[in-house]
Design a protein around this nucleic acid. Structure first.
Length: 276
DNA sequence: CTGGTCTCCTGATCGC
DNA sequence: TGCGATCAGGAGACCA
């Protein structure tokens, strides 16, 4: 479910409740959801949560223990994953709760019905960077026009699949790519290496405003997304193409019916008149 | 290297 | 009320 704005909202909502808390125990109800270095524990008992770091759609919880030990857990929410804070422990855990981090008061739960997401454990944030985040492109909120242009110019793929590729730019998913391409008035099927530096500049700027607005609105809640404290988002009300196939284009003076097709296995909605 | 198709899962929704 | 088909915010494997 979650793309960059939703994961950032989870990060921001969890920060105030998690920072400084001391971990008591970790319950792995479904151990196969936890992956990573066999020698790594991720976060261990006695460590305090130091910070929460996001890159693209992934969120790292960074811990530090009294003896200077470090720990790191990276969550990737996939389609249906959630990280939720609860001020009181629950026994038994709610359905599809795969991992629980128990603190002095309250607990953090990773739940994921479809299990497309997961949790990766590392000995430190640095280890997570080299082992897991190194293959990701720059975060969509900090990518530069030059960097985006260079990445796009290196591939003959269509623009939408290229932007969905987390190695090109990290954070975009199906909703925000469609919204971005509509705003930038570019065809999803445009060849990525045909994007001009000026268009890459426009894409970069629009990407940041789009994602920032979505974050400010609390993300997009289509069916079950909520942030770390259970709040739903409101940005779905601002979608201009996603979920609107067959309805009229909202651009002033257009009014053409939005078209839908499948690209890279994903439903793609665009305006045949405005885009391209 | 590319796009298309399938797969991993569960659950909501729709038509019969 | 039940039942099957279809679809879903992600991503990676395989194939031609």
């Amino acid at each position: 479910m979650p793309e960059l704005p939703e994961v950032e909202c989870v990060r921001r909502s969890l920060e105030p409740v998690l920072i400084g808390r001391t971990l008591r125990e970790v319950l792995r109800h479904r151990p196969d959801v936890v992956r990573g270095d066999a020698n790594a524990h991720g976060l261990s008992r006695g460590q305090r949560i130091e910070r929460l770091v996001r890159h693209g759609k992934q969120l790292a919880l960074v811990g530090r223990g009294p003896g200077g030990t470090t720990g790191c857990v990276v969550a990737h929410l996939g389609m249906s994953g959630q990280l939720r804070w609860a001020s009181a422990p629950a026994n038994p855990a709610p359905k599809h709760t795969h991992v629980v981090w128990r603190f002095d008061q309250g607990e953090l739960r990773f739940t994921d019905p479809r299990r497309f997401g997961g949790v990766w454990v590392f000995p430190s944030l640095e280890a997570a960077y080299t082992a897991r985040w190194a293959e990701l492109g720059p975060d969509a909120l900090s990518v530069t026009p030059a960097r985006l242009h260079r990445a796009l110019s290196r591939t003959t793929r269509m623009l939408k699949p290229a932007l969905l590729d987390q190695a090109v730019v990290a954070g975009l998913g199906n909703i925000y790519v469609d919204e971005l391409l509509f705003g930038a008035r570019l065809r999803p099927t445009l060849q990525a290496n045909a994007v001009t530096p000026a268009q890459a500049g426009s894409l970069t700027r629009r990407m940041k405003t789009l994602l920032s607005r979505a974050i400010r609105a609390g993300g997009s809640t289509l069916r079950d997304y909520v942030d770390g404290t259970g709040s739903a988002g409101g940005y779905q009300l601002a979608h201009r193409v996603y979920g609107r196939a067959g309805q009229r284009c909202l651009r002033r003076g257009c009014g053409v019916d939005l078209a839908s097709s499948t690209l890279a296995g994903r439903t793609t909605v665009y305006c045949p008149a405005c885009q391209g």
